[in-house]
Structure formats: structure tokens, C-alpha cells
Design a binder for these strands. Structure first.
Lengths: 124, 124
DNA sequence: TCCGTATTAGTAACTATTCTCAAAAGAGAA
DNA sequence: TTCTCTTTTGAGAATAGTTACTAATACGGA
């Protein structure tokens, strides 16, 4: 656990937004000005393999990262790209329903909602 | 509706896999050897805007395209990346449940399952 | 403290996609 | 059909996000 890795983890856990690697880099740089973007990517990868953070491959071109690891789903604003958590029970029911209908061995699921966030709704 | 656009659409409708732009390019090239990759990307974009095909932004680094436009969901094999359709009723129930729980204006949702496809299961 | 391994910063390389632009192909009117 | 105007094309350059490489540095156990 290096200084860099710890700072990246801490910054991510501090936020309840779902930052991109770039945004994590910006924040880490305030505390460690010489940290490199490569280090941020590498550590985000390692931390998500360890299960300390979550890597989100949702819509849009960039991956996002989440300091919360419990199973939960997300809403993405179609206008500004902001991502928020959705307070909702897990999807075990749906997953079970699928198990009969598909010949795949189902491991998990990913549910993402698309909508307009309160702020963008106001600005319209 | 140019020759190129028609060929791209036809090739996509012929398949029940969910090809990447590259795979569509390969197939289109068999019929129009001088077609360019840029043309394929451009037309896939246009066709999906017209609602003649569907653009899938699922997990993984590449976008995929689907000749079927009815609302349905997908399973992705975690080993080989193959994507299959899931025969399942639409998710209006879940979407409605979310509408109360979030302050976003919900427009739609995207549900993807992750699993192991029959072939990879066998090879294991 | 010393030593072997892991990690870093910096940069180059890569991949998927989009953009640019001159040339070619449609499509509508005469 | 031929003329014009607009759209689309092919080829390649440009971009964005991410990953790989490498010499130098930091870590952590004996």
C-alpha cells in the first residue's frame, strides 16, 4: 500500500459522485503533485480487483469509479452525464427469472437507468 | 439510401450476433471491397438515429450493433465476450418502481446480464 | 541497514472512434 | 438524358481514453 494508492482510495471514498479516472487524477494531484495519470489508472484497476472500489462500465466513453462496493444501481443524466446512486433493493428476483430463460450461466447483472437530473430539468 | 448504407443494414439484419463496427466492416467488405471503415461507422450511427438498428453501449471497450430494434436485453459472456439476446418481458415494472425513488426524470433503462455462455462452460 | 521485489513518473504506443476534405455518387428539375 | 445541387464516399489524419514500457525510486522483510 503505497502513498499514491492510499490517496487514490481515500479521495474516491470521500466522494459520492462517480468520478472518471481523470477526475480522480485531478484530486490526487492536489495532495501528490507529482503523481502520474498512469499510476492512477493502474491503482484504480488494482483496487477494483481487490474489491476495495468498483469499476463502472456504463454508457458513455469513459469508465467511472465508485468508492461504494455494495451492490446498487445508477442513473445517468442524458444531458450532463452526471451519475447518481439509486436507492433500490438488489435485483436477485430478475436474475432468478432469467436463469430459466437463458442457457448462459448467469453470474450477475447490471442495470442502469437513463434520465434527466434535477439540475438539467430546471435549466431546460 | 446508398449502396453502402443498404449493404450495411442488410448484413446487420442477417446476423443474430451483435457485431462490433469492425465485424460489420469485414462483412460489408466482402460485397463492397472498396468500402471504408469510416463509412461503416458513419452509417451505423445514421441507421441507429433513424431507428432502423440499435446501438448497444454495453460493457467492454467496443460498441456493438443490433439489427433487431424491439426492446430486449442481453447477456454477455465474461470469458469470450459473446453477446446473446435474452427472451424476457420489458422492464416497465422496474422503471416505474424507480420513478418514486429517484429525483431524476427517468427516460429508460438498460439491463445487461453477465454470465458464461454454453460453449465456454463446456470448454472449462 | 541491506537487498530483492514492487511501484512509480514520464512517455510512447495502442485502440476505438470521429473528423476532414477533395472526389464521386445520388436525386430532382428541365 | 443532362445539368445542377446536395449528400456521401474513401483515405487518411486527428482525437480521446487507456495501456504498456522502462529506468529510477520506494517499500518491506531479514
Amino acid at each position: 500500500m503505497t502513498q499514491q494508492r492510499r490517496v487514490i482510495l481515500e479521495e474516491l471514498q470521500k466522494l459520492d459522485s462517480h468520478p472518471t479516472a481523470d477526475e480522480v487524477y485531478e484530486r490526487a494531484r492536489r495532495r501528490l503533485p507529482r503523481i502520474s495519470l498512469g499510476t492512477v489508472y493502474r491503482n484504480l484497476e488494482i483496487l477494483s480487483e481487490c474489491g476495495l472500489i468498483q469499476k463502472l462500465e456504463l454508457g458513455g466513453t469513459q469508465k467511472r469509479f465508485d468508492g461504494r462496493v455494495e451492490n446498487h444501481c445508477h442513473v445517468r443524466c442524458i444531458r450532463c452525464g452526471r451519475i447518481s446512486d439509486v436507492p433500490m433493493a438488489p435485483l436477485t428476483t430478475i436474475e432468478n427469472r432469467i436463469r430459466g430463460a437463458s442457457d448462459y450461466e448467469i453470474i450477475g447483472s447490471r442495470l442502469e437507468f437513463i434520465g434527466v437530473c434535477p439540475q438539467c430539468k430546471k435549466e431546460h
